[in-house]
Design a protein around this nucleic acid. Structure first.
Lengths: 152, 152
DNA sequence: TTTATATTGAGATATTGTATCAACACTACC
DNA sequence: GGTAGTGTTGATACAATATCTCAATATAAA
């Protein structure tokens, strides 16, 4: 079976392949169900829900049990390869993290841009001085409409 | 019953009283269950969960049905008197909004500071130019430790 | 190949809500 | 003061997201 696995990995689009490699590096096995989730996430190419992953995989008759999809998403979040998206309506979407912390999301189609330079340093310094808090983390998500949806 | 209601309102701490007034202004009845939720939220004085509201009220034997607590929280969110908090671990906390959009939250005790000037205008302008998106909303939450928890 | 460990899938369970609907409580009108 | 209409409540059912349990299976290491 491990030969089959290697064959499939070789056929993966680069991003899923890279994510799988990072999973392996972290000491986790790159199994078929986990690969399937990675492929789905890469293919969807937007902020996705677990349900959307499952639907994508069901259409291709390669869906693992829903528990395994949830487990894989959680594992990838813990490894900081996936990231939870904080939406305006709900917080049940995830994205491939790419090491970036923040997102710009199209409320119309779900298209997503990641960026890391959030320019909050001054605000954080000011707030620390004003409040006496020691700030060490933050959530920042921006919402709007992407060029394609604006053109429609 | 309406005499009793007025008597109790007069005993409220100011913030709950004000929130109740705004509910009334918006055309909603200020009932005992709704007042109870307001009192609990004010008393907790931090980012709270619906479960925490219920516990606070149960301890005082004045808890409405859980459905009414959820309904009241939702109503107050719709009226922008409460606001959902986007936490690092989950997004099931709420705060009294005070019209401000952003929060600084102590991860240790849940203490909460609100502020409105988030200084994101430059970032938003830059991102709009870089991406072609039209940005019209955002979520920003900051996390750290409050002075009291830092002192422990 | 054998052994030990990690992972899976199915189903039960938990958590956070929302929908339904009969009973109740106000309000306005007569 | 009664009555009708509306808003609200509480109990329960239901839904969506997610985790737990545990036997069966897959994988890796010896």
């Amino acid at each position: 079976m491990s030969r089959l696995l290697k064959q499939q990995q070789a056929l993966l689009p680069a991003p899923a392949h890279e994510l799988a490699a990072q999973m392996a590096e972290a000491g986790y096995k790159v199994t078929q169900p986990r690969l399937a989730v990675l492929r789905a996430a890469v293919a969807l190419d937007k902020a996705f829900t677990v349900h959307e992953l499952e639907q994508w995989l069901l259409q291709r008759n390669e869906s693992p049990g829903i528990a395994s999809i949830f487990r894989t998403v959680k594992l990838l979040c813990d490894l900081e390869l996936f990231q939870r998206i904080h939406g305006l309506e709900d917080c049940h979407r995830y994205s491939i993290s790419g090491g970036h912390a923040h997102h710009l999301i199209c409320v119309s189609c779900g298209a997503l841009k990641s960026f890391d330079n959030c320019g909050l340093r001054d605000l954080i310094t000011t707030l620390e001085q004003q409040t006496g808090y020691h700030i060490n983390d933050h959530v920042l998500e921006l919402f709007g409409r992407c060029p394609r949806c604006l053109a429609v």
